[in-house]
């Protein structure tokens, strides 16, 4: 029984995810996408990187590989599924999560720490936090601007599916604190049920005390 960290050609946060999960004592293994998921995984991580060279759109190719059908089935069976960065792009491209992540407002790749406000703390991904908590995680993306139609955004708000919003030190979701122009400052959302989450910031890069802040641990504890 293990958490499967799905590796595509171009994934580059797969080993970071394993290191962070192992630090928390969570059993996990890297799975090559063409080999499919192991039987009864206890969770699935779709890690960051540049799968298929970001051809066409970030995540577009990986989202249409056969393993995503397995991930979708696991998600529907209630298995926790987390998409981070390129994994979030793959998640939205595959229909696991709503909206789309596209070119940053700056048109540049951005690699920097950001603050996030916890919006919904009643999910496995945010159970370690209180609503309104401000946490710090790094981002590293060129296509992280969350886009969704007005009706879709309204539905997300109504269903309380926004997990995190970019915010300032006081927890205000201001335009200045929005690193990439995401609609409504959205940094991470739930899929159709709360066992599926996608987010652009990297919890696995903020989980080891030796290298800095550890706010990401709370998110990864959903796999415990």
């Amino acid at each position: 029984m293990t958490v499967a960290v799905v590796r595509f050609g171009g994934s580059n946060c797969d080993r970071d995810a394993v290191r962070a999960l192992e630090h928390l004592g969570i059993d996990c293994e890297i799975v090559w996408h063409a080999d499919g998921l192991p039987d009864d995984p206890t969770g699935v991580v779709i890690p960051g990187g540049f799968s298929y060279g970001d051809y066409l759109r970030a995540g577009a190719m990986a989202a249409r590989t056969p393993i995503l059908a397995e991930v979708r089935a696991a998600a529907e069976a209630g298995t926790p599924v987390l998409g981070v960065c390129n994994g979030a792009q793959i998640g939205s491209e595959s229909g696991l999560a709503p909206g789309a992540f596209t070119t940053n407002r700056s048109a540049r790749f951005q690699c920097e720490p950001v603050r996030l406000r916890v919006e919904n703390a009643e999910t496995p991904w945010t159970a370690a936090f209180e609503p309104g908590d401000v946490i710090e995680l790094p981002i590293a993306h060129g296509e992280g601007r969350f886009e969704i139609g007005d009706d879709g955004l309204e539905a997300l708000r109504a269903d309380d599916r926004v997990l995190f919003r970019y915010c300032d030190a006081d927890g205000e979701a201001t335009d200045a604190a929005n690193p990439n122009g995401s609609k409504d400052n959205v940094a991470g959302v739930l899929g159709e049920s709360d066992n599926v989450a996608v987010l652009m910031p990297h919890p696995e890069r903020a989980s080891l005390p030796d290298i800095g802040p550890t706010d990401g641990q709370g998110i990864l504890r959903a796999f415990e």
């Binding site: 066409l56 759109r57 249409r64 789309a100 879709g152």
Partner: peptide, 9 residues
Amino acid sequence: DRLLANPTI
């Protein structure tokens, strides 16, 4: 519909 365009955007 299946690949070239993303209907969200």
